[in-house]
Deep mutational scan, measured.
Amino acid sequence: EEEEKKKEEIARLLGVSKEDVERILKKNNLDIEQLLRRVQREN
């Protein structure tokens, strides 16, 4: 699934687990696209 791939990509870029990414998304109330763009910009 596309969303899972995005979570895995974010996890890889941040050096965290996919579960961490899911927690970040919930905690910050971000959607996956916003987080992915933010992470890609910083790297």
Rank of each mutant, 00 (worst) to 15 (best):
V21L: 05
N29H: 11
L25R: 02
E33D: 15
E42A: 10
G15H: 07
L35M: 05
R38V: 13
D20S: 08
E4D: 12
V16L: 10
N43E: 11
E9S: 06
E22C: 10
E19W: 09
I10L: 09
I24D: 01
N28V: 09
N43G: 11
V21S: 00
R41N: 12
D31S: 15
E19G: 09
R23P: 02
D20F: 14
K5V: 10
E8C: 10
Q40H: 08
K26R: 14
L35G: 00
V39N: 02
E9I: 15
R38S: 10
E2C: 10
I32Y: 04
N29W: 04
K5R: 14
V39D: 01
L14K: 01
E42Q: 12
K6H: 07
K18D: 02
L35Q: 01
E4Y: 06
E2V: 09
E1I: 12
L35F: 07
E19Y: 09
D20Q: 13
E22D: 12
K27D: 14
L25F: 02
R23H: 10
L25P: 00
N43D: 09
L13M: 09
S17D: 05
K6D: 04
I24R: 03
L14T: 01
L13K: 04
L36H: 04
A11F: 01
E2G: 11
R41G: 13
R12Y: 07
E9H: 11
N43W: 08
L30S: 04
N43F: 13
L30V: 08
E1A: 13
R12D: 03
Q40D: 04
A11L: 01
E9V: 12
E9D: 06
Q34K: 07
E19S: 11
R41M: 14
V16W: 06
V21Q: 00
E9M: 15
K7L: 11
K18H: 05
L14C: 07
E42M: 08
R37L: 13
N43Y: 12
K7H: 03
D20R: 09
E42C: 15
L36P: 00
K18G: 03
E19D: 11
K5D: 09
E22K: 03
R41E: 14
G15C: 08
V39Q: 02
E33M: 04
K5P: 04
E8M: 14
K6Y: 08
D31Y: 03
R38N: 10
D20L: 10
R23I: 11
V21N: 00
L13T: 03
I10D: 00
E2K: 08
E33L: 05
N28K: 09
E33G: 05
K18W: 05
R12F: 07
V21M: 02
E8R: 11
G15V: 02
L35W: 05
K27P: 01
L13Y: 06
L14G: 00
E2D: 12
N28Q: 12
L13G: 01
E3K: 10
E3Q: 13
L25K: 01
E9K: 10
E42K: 07
D20N: 06
K18N: 04
L13W: 06
E19R: 11
I24Q: 03
R38P: 01
K7D: 01
E19N: 09
L35Y: 03
V16P: 00
V21W: 01
K5S: 10
L25Y: 02
E8T: 10
L13N: 02
E1Y: 13
N28L: 15
K6A: 10
L36N: 01
N29A: 07
E9W: 15
E42S: 09
E22M: 08
K5M: 12
R23D: 11
Q34P: 01
S17N: 07
D20P: 00
V21R: 00
L25W: 01
E3R: 14
A11V: 03
V21Y: 01
N28F: 15
E4V: 07
E9L: 15
K6T: 08
A11Q: 03
I10R: 00
L25H: 01
L30G: 05
I24Y: 12
Q40P: 02
S17E: 05
E3L: 14
K7Y: 07
L36G: 01
K27R: 14
R23F: 10
R38K: 13
L13F: 05
E33N: 13
L30C: 06
E1T: 13
N43H: 15
K18P: 07
G15Q: 06
L25M: 12
L36K: 02
L25A: 07
E8V: 11
Q34G: 10
Q40M: 11
R37G: 07
L30A: 04
I32H: 02
E3T: 12
K7M: 11
E2S: 12
G15K: 07
V16I: 15
E19A: 13
E1W: 13
E9R: 09
E3Y: 15
K26E: 11
N28D: 13
S17T: 14
K5T: 09
K26P: 00
E4R: 07
L13R: 06
V16E: 01
A11C: 08
V39M: 08
D31C: 08
R41V: 08
V39R: 02
R23Q: 13
L36M: 06
E3V: 14
E42I: 10
Q34W: 09
N43S: 13
R38C: 08
K18E: 03
K6G: 05
Q40W: 04
D31N: 13
Q34I: 08
I32G: 02
E3P: 07
D31V: 04
E1V: 12
V39Y: 04
I24M: 11
S17G: 06
K18Q: 05
N28T: 15
E3H: 11
E22N: 11
N43A: 14
L13S: 03
K7P: 01
V16Y: 04
Q34T: 15
K18S: 05
K26Q: 12
V16F: 04
Q40Y: 05
I10P: 00
R37E: 15
E3A: 13
E3G: 09
R38F: 15
K27W: 11
Q40F: 03
R37W: 04
R23G: 07
K5I: 10
E1D: 13
I24T: 03
K26A: 13
Q40T: 10
L25E: 00
L36A: 04
